[in-house]
């Protein structure tokens, strides 16, 4: 592959005492793209991000951030990175405006015009003391500081935690704008709609390990689509087609799920039955995600072990 990577992580490992937080995690963010990082609480998202920021040191594997070593080159790299944590703690006796300036100055760029624009977008009053801010407003302070910066890479760790739906919309616009400016974004989240809307690529992690990664389209190719169709003929003919499962018949309406590879055969079998109103539904991100968790995942694992 010739495309450059803003973040490139291979086989990352991290132990906290006896607890294995990361167990061979892989992660890539192509330059100029938005990458979604999905996983439930405790799956290792924040640990990975803290290693990328040089706050924690990896026990194994490699991590490259904007071509540098996140641990060794931390200070230099941080000039080019903006980070928003999922739970922002501010200095209670400073105002939000002061905190934004200080965070900018610590990175090395304070662009007051840009700051004012994002303050307006996020509808944040910068003259209030941080102690009187709600959770969502503290989050906005970090978001304004990050978006107003000229950082090449935005690392956002569940950034919309505590934001109302209106502000989530503003956030979505800001990420799109950042992408249009050619910046790269690593977005850790467990809000599927957000990731589906924003991200070019998606990684799903479980227990410190990447279980799925690629573009949303690629991921969908690997999974079965659901097809619903109205036919004149006898649905029994379909059940014989290899690759068709979960066939249900409700009068003239038939629905079933099918592998990508079996589609041509299915179409051939369908044609003589006089199909009308065919709807093909690709799996949603939520379905892709849940496949790796909960009851489904446990069954799959049990089956694999048998």
């Amino acid at each position: 592959m010739t495309e450059t990577l803003a973040v490139d992580v291979h086989g990352l490992e991290k132990d906290f005492g006896a607890v294995r937080a990361l167990d061979g995690l892989d992660l890539r963010v192509a330059t100029g793209s938005v990458a979604g990082f999905l996983g439930p609480n405790g799956s290792g998202k924040s640990t990975t991000i803290r290693i990328l920021l040089g706050l924690l040191r990896a026990d194994g594997g490699t991590a490259t951030l904007l071509g540098g070593d996140p641990w060794r080159d931390a200070v230099g790299l941080h000039r080019r990175v903006a980070y928003v944590a999922g739970d922002v703690t501010l200095w209670p006796n400073l105002t939000g405006g002061q905190a934004i300036d200080i965070l900018g100055a610590l990175r090395g760029d304070v662009d007051r015009a840009r700051i004012d624009r994002f303050l307006q977008l996020f509808d944040l009053d910068p003259t209030k003391k941080a102690r009187s801010y709600s959770k969502g407003n503290r989050q906005k302070v970090a978001l304004v500081a990050a978006f107003a910066s000229r950082a090449e890479l935005l690392i956002l760790d569940e950034p919309t935690n505590g934001l109302d739906p209106l502000m989530e919309g503003v956030f979505t616009d800001c990420v799109s704008e950042a992408k249009a400016e050619g910046r790269s974004v690593l977005l850790s989240s467990h809000i599927f709609a957000e990731v589906e809307k924003l991200c070019d690529t998606v990684m799903i992690i479980r227990d410190g390990r990447t279980v799925e990664s690629g573009t949303l389209t690629e991921l969908r190719h690997l999974q079965r689509s659901t097809i619903t169709v109205t036919i004149d003929g006898n649905a029994a003919a379909l059940s014989a087609v290899q690759g068709v499962t979960d066939l249900t018949v409700d009068g003239v309406r038939v629905s079933f799920s099918v592998d990508e590879g079996a589609l041509p055969r299915v179409m051939t079998a369908l044609a003589p039955l006089g199909p009308r109103g065919l709807i093909s539904t690709p799996p949603s991100l939520e379905e892709l995600f849940l496949r790796h968790y909960g009851v489904h995942a446990d069954q799959a694992e049990a089956a694999a072990q048998r």
Binding site: L94, T95, Q98, D101, I102, A105, P126, K128, K129, S132
Partner: peptide
Amino acid sequence: PDRRGPRHASALTMTP
């Protein structure tokens, strides 16, 4: 009323 604070940090406050 809760007192308002400055909108921006002073140049001094922006140094560590």
